[in-house]
Amino acid sequence: MTAEVKRKFNSRRGASVVLALFLLLVCTFAGTAALTAARANVGRHAGARDVQEKYLSATSAARLMIDELQKANGKISGTFDPTLTDNIEFGGLDTNSVYKLIADDIKAVLHNAVYEKVKGDADWSGFPKPTHTFEEHEFELRVDGDDSFENVRITISVGDTGDGNGGNIEVTSKCGDYVYMFVMPYNTSFNKDTGKCTFSATATPEIRPPYKGESTS
């Protein structure tokens, strides 16, 4: 058997067939590589549509929420007095509004703002220190009866700068692996004579990190 194999190896016959077979192998490999690369490219482009749908759903939802939150501009105000306990009155709070969903936070923002402005004032010495803790509010947005838009998770968090002048409302929109974040600055103004503190959100929202436009699909 070994002698037969040795003879085959040393034989000079059939070299052209071997070379042709080798070329066939090379051509098959080269063709397969080109085809695999092309197929992967098509797959990537097909996945891009899914990413764009998520991107549009996430940005539409975030912009809608920001637009709705901006409607709170000038509509929310509280009238405070030095003996305030828990009877804050708020005007213009639309029952079907997004800012209604974070009303407690906005009330706390006004309370904080007043507290910061009257701190150290003898007339307001009895004004209670705010105790509210700001927490994230999470929602799901659905376009009724339209499956072409994916459901989007929205997180709203309200924060203030601690100086009584305002702060930021962060709106994070998440659709699949797509995350989009808007930051909307707001201001508070307080008139000590009338005791009126007003919430305003006139500044243009900014897009901030985290921003991720990728999909694992």
Partner: peptide, 21 residues
């Protein structure tokens, strides 16, 4: 046999490149 194999190799390569294109 060699020529047949060469033609086959070229045909496969051409078909695959065409599909890739």
């Amino acid at each position: 046999v060699s020529i047949t194999l060469l033609v086959l190799a070229m045909s496969i390569l051409a078909a695959m490149l065409s599909a890739a294109y």
